[in-house]
């Protein structure tokens, strides 16, 4: 099947990845090969499968929403590349 370089560029934008021209060309070829392999999915016969798409574990696992203090607040903030006091610092967005 193959995908166009424009699609590769568009997907990279959606995924927030800057790619070099070489990378884009490489992924165009490699993703094309992988997607060709996946053509077999079009022959999946899922008739009569409705209702059996359940997750492997039950979803009724809600617990009380009771807040607990997180003891390592400073360790968490220490990982920030840039911070101001107890805030993560980001660029101005507005």
């Amino acid at each position: 099947m193959g995908i166009s370089i424009d699609i590769v560029r568009k997907v990279a934008r959606l995924a927030r990845l800057t790619l070099t021209a070489d990378e884009a060309a490489l992924y165009q070829s490699q993703l094309g090969t992988v997607l060709d392999h996946m053509a077999d999915l079009s022959s999946v016969d899922a008739a009569g499968l409705a209702g059996t798409l359940a997750a492997p574990v039950p979803a009724d696992v809600l617990r009380e929403d009771s807040p607990e203090p997180f003891e390592a607040r400073e360790e968490l903030l220490a990982n920030a590349p840039e911070r101001e006091g107890s805030y993560f610092k980001v660029r101005k967005v507005l």
């Binding site: 590769v8 997907v11 959606l14 990845l17 790619l19 992924y27 490699q30 992988v34 997607l35």
Partner: peptide, 9 residues
Amino acid sequence: KRRVMLGTY
């Protein structure tokens, strides 16, 4: 990057 691209696609 390859897998993130594949998944995003």
